[in-house]
């Protein structure tokens, strides 16, 4: 079965998705603060990693990596609320790119599977 990552068009399509997704995050006051102090190009690279991972593209992240990557954010108050906001923007981004609802659901399920690690529980 081809991954959603491949169906979207692989790495080149990710760049477009990241632009849309990242704009949504920066414009949402509920989560923008987490992305405030970081270099934009570096941040975009991490968003690419995020989208590649949740759409089933090539990545080698483990739950432990997710725990480590977000630990400093948990310390700054990252909660389920923020997690839900991110999943919402993720779904909207994919919808804008024409991904059908049932595939978006699959992506959201992948994201859900790391909720505990991201939130450090």
């Amino acid at each position: 079965m081809t991954s959603i990552y491949e169906q979207l068009g692989g790495a080149p399509a990710m760049e477009k998705a990241v632009e849309i997704f990242y704009r949504k995050m920066l414009q949402d006051d509920r989560v923008a603060g987490f992305f405030e102090d970081v270099d934009m190009d570096r941040q975009a690279a991490k968003q690419t990693a995020f989208l590649t991972m949740v759409t089933g593209g090539p990545n080698s992240y483990t739950g432990r990596d997710m725990r480590a990557a977000h630990a400093h954010l948990v310390a700054r108050g990252l909660t389920d609320l923020h997690f839900d906001v991110v999943i919402g923007h993720l779904g909207d981004t994919l919808a804008e790119l024409g991904v059908p609802a049932e595939l978006i659901k699959q992506v959201a399920d992948v994201a859900e599977s790391v909720r505990g690690d991201v939130l450090g529980r």
Partner: peptide
């Protein structure tokens, strides 16, 4: 010094 954010 690091600026505070409006995230909390």
């Amino acid at each position: 010094p690091a600026t505070t954010t409006n995230s909390a």
